[in-house]
Design a protein around this nucleic acid. Structure first.
Length: 565
RNA sequence: CGGGGAUUGGCGCAAUUGGCUAGCGCGCACGGUUUGGGACCGUGAGGCUGUAGGUUCGAAUCCUAUAUCCCCGACCA
């Protein structure tokens, strides 16, 4: 490819709306162009990278036995409603109507369509496991797209789905995808950390996310250096330390308390005891209107995802409003740990303290010496607290958790019967009876992968592509092209490289200075840079330099093809 | 969805007590001088100032509506 003919050029300046490095470099290098918030055009250079990433993913995913296909983008809303997924995905779904006013959604993911497809095939145990995948455009009406390709409203995703007779069978396939994902990451030059995760809107049991550490990451994950435990904050488990279990249990009393005591800080001021000794309530509302109160030790905070899991929420939990509290007959700071018309969910930490303070706040009274199990109990009890830096790891009970910022590069989901139950996803077993299909799903976003690669592969001059996905293998710069003999050399090298199937970008501009060409080459980030110029010819050949090294060397015309191969 | 900011050639910006033909830099085109780390000189093209209404002798500037974008939060593979 001649740079002079390349559609989409580099630019010296970049919109200051781009904050992430990868976003800036992609725009500046002429890889992408924004159409509207979270929707990007892939220019030829960017599209080449995208295709290469796809090819690597395709190759590794096929090793799991997966077969590629493609389903429609516009999916009948009815299907989603059948599986009750429309509620879970909620406002992220793009809705459209056709000429008959029939409602469709632009696919945000394809579990329901794939489930439906498999159903149409009437599978029997002989067909299982079924392992299918596609690359397709996904649409999510994200509240706030960020970081260029990191979080978009429209993106290409490799999404795979597997169907099994039972969980055991799923686990085999799940494991194959795990390996495939590790291989993909490796070939893309990414170091992944696999973490346990909550299934979120997809639904199902325990799953795993493949994370890459980077400052622009929107996710925080907890790591234990002792035992290598890693989890995101929606699942990260930690040991609650015992606060005062050696203290004698006293009788509960109602005591007068100055009216100004409302917040945790007020309590500390008034009672002179640290945060751990107080009861704290956090109030949420489920999508069906149920009020859910998380009861927790004063020094900890509730993680809504954990809370939702312990309680078995219908949908997303939202923080309760003042209005909701009013309906309960209380107000902020005055919520009781028992007695309201609500579902109570207690945290494990409630069993680490004797003689809690609080729980029945009134105008100028409150209770003290409150003990869990004796004075009150919650309908649900479990791990609802968010881990904090320095907490003790719950796996090895030795290491301290440390937090890092990361991007979710891919995920594998053990979905179980989440879709087969509502959608009657069945197969005929050996004995002729119908049984439910056990399902898994596996996703990797292409654009996000590209951004993540740049975030971890760049310097202050530009991108440094791993060879596996660079848009071209070689960037040939012709300098001093006004000199016809030099130009002829450069042209013949260009033709020679092409003849030898070396994918080359040839900077053939004769009206641009050397400095500009070098700067563009660094920005675009192709792994090998070749220069033909007056100087290189005087030295007897072609200048060869790798993007990630500062030293260059001279190679003769004869050796160049061998060197590149 | 809540709060704040913004929208002027491809990009970055200027011009508001309402007043001259809406300027500048980058980029682009042409001519010339240059030629190893984003060169210089000259000439030129490119804008009914997001859109729709309104006020006014006169609107980029004031008013109304609307769209879009950015930031913080909420939310979210």
């Amino acid at each position: 490819m001649r740079y002079s003919k390349l559609f989409g050029k580099t630019s010296k300046t970049v919109s200051n709306q781009a904050t992430a490095v990868s976003h800036k470099l992609l725009l500046q290098g002429g890889f992408i162009r924004m159409l509207s918030a979270g929707r990007y055009t892939f220019l030829p250079l960017g599209f080449k990278v995208s295709k290469k990433v796809e090819d690597i993913i395709r190759e590794e995913v096929e090793k799991t036995g997966a077969q590629e296909l493609i389903v429609p983008t516009l999916q009948p809303l009815e299907l989603w409603q059948k599986a009750n997924r429309d509620k879970k995905f909620g406002s992220s779904m793009m809705l459209v109507k056709d000429r008959n006013e029939a409602e469709f959604t632009l696919g945000a993911t394809a579990e329901v369509v794939m489930m439906d497809l498999v159903n149409q095939m009437n599978p029997t145990y002989k067909d299982l496991p079924i392992n299918i995948y596609q690359f397709s455009q996904k649409f999510r009406d994200e509240a706030r797209p960020t970081g260029g390709l990191l979080r978009t409203r429209e993106f290409v995703m490799k999404d795979a789905y597997s169907f099994h007779e039972n969980e055991e069978s799923l686990k085999e396939t799940y494991q194959k995808y795990w390996v495939a994902y590790e291989n993909i990451a490796k070939r893309l030059g990414l170091k992944v950390i696999v973490v346990e995760s909550d299934n979120g809107a997809i639904g199902g049991a325990v799953s795993h996310e493949f994370m890459v550490e980077t400052d622009v990451g929107e996710d925080t994950i907890a790591l234990c250096d002792e035992c290598r435990y890693a989890a995101n904050l929606e699942t990260a488990q930690f040991d609650r330390k015992d606060i005062n279990l050696d203290e004698e249990i006293k009788d509960m009393e109602i005591v007068t308390q100055p009216e100004w005591v409302e917040t945790m800080e007020d309590n500390i001021k008034h009672y002179g005891k640290s945060k751990e000794h107080y009861l704290k309530n956090v109030v949420y509302k489920d999508t069906d209107g149920t009020i859910v109160i998380g009861v927790i030790r004063g020094d900890l905070s509730v993680n809504p995802a954990k809370l939702a899991k312990v309680y078995g929420a219908k949908g997303e939990l939202e923080p309760a409003t003042d209005e909701d509290l009013k309906k309960l007959g209380t107000k902020s700071g005055w919520v009781h740990c028992w007695g309201h018309d609500a579902v109570y969910v207690g945290d494990l930490s409630l069993k680490t303290v004797h003689n809690f303070i609080g729980g029945q706040k009134q105008k100028d009274t409150d209770s003290i010496n409150v003990n869990y199990g004796r004075d009150f109990e919650c309908q649900f009890f479990g791990d609802i607290a968010e881990a904090q830096v320095g907490d003790t790891c719950a796996k090895c009970h030795k290491g301290k958790l440390r937090f890092i910022k990361a991007v979710e590069f891919g995920n594998i989901f053990n979905i179980g019967y989440t879709y087969s139950n509502p959608m009657d996803g069945n197969f005929v077993d050996k004995d002729g009876s119908l049984k439910k299909l056990y399902m898994g799903s596996y996703g990797i976003g292409i654009g996000r992968a590209i951004s993540t690669i740049i975030e971890t592969h760049h310097d202050d001059k530009g991108i440094i592509w791993p060879e596996s996905i660079a848009p071209y293998q070689v960037h040939l710069l012709g300098l001093d092209l006004f000199d016809e003999s030099i130009k002829a050399k450069a042209e013949s090298l260009y033709e020679n490289l092409k003849k030898n199937n070396i994918d080359v970008l040839y900077d053939d501009r004769d009206d641009v200075t050397a400095g500009a060409k070098f700067a563009d080459a660094d920005l675009i980030g192709i792994p090998v840079r070749l220069v033909i110029s007056k100087r290189s010819l005087e030295k007897g050949g072609i200048e060869y330099k790798k993007r990630d090294q500062s030293e260059s060397k001279i190679i003769s015309d004869k050796e160049i093809i061998g060197e590149l191969k």
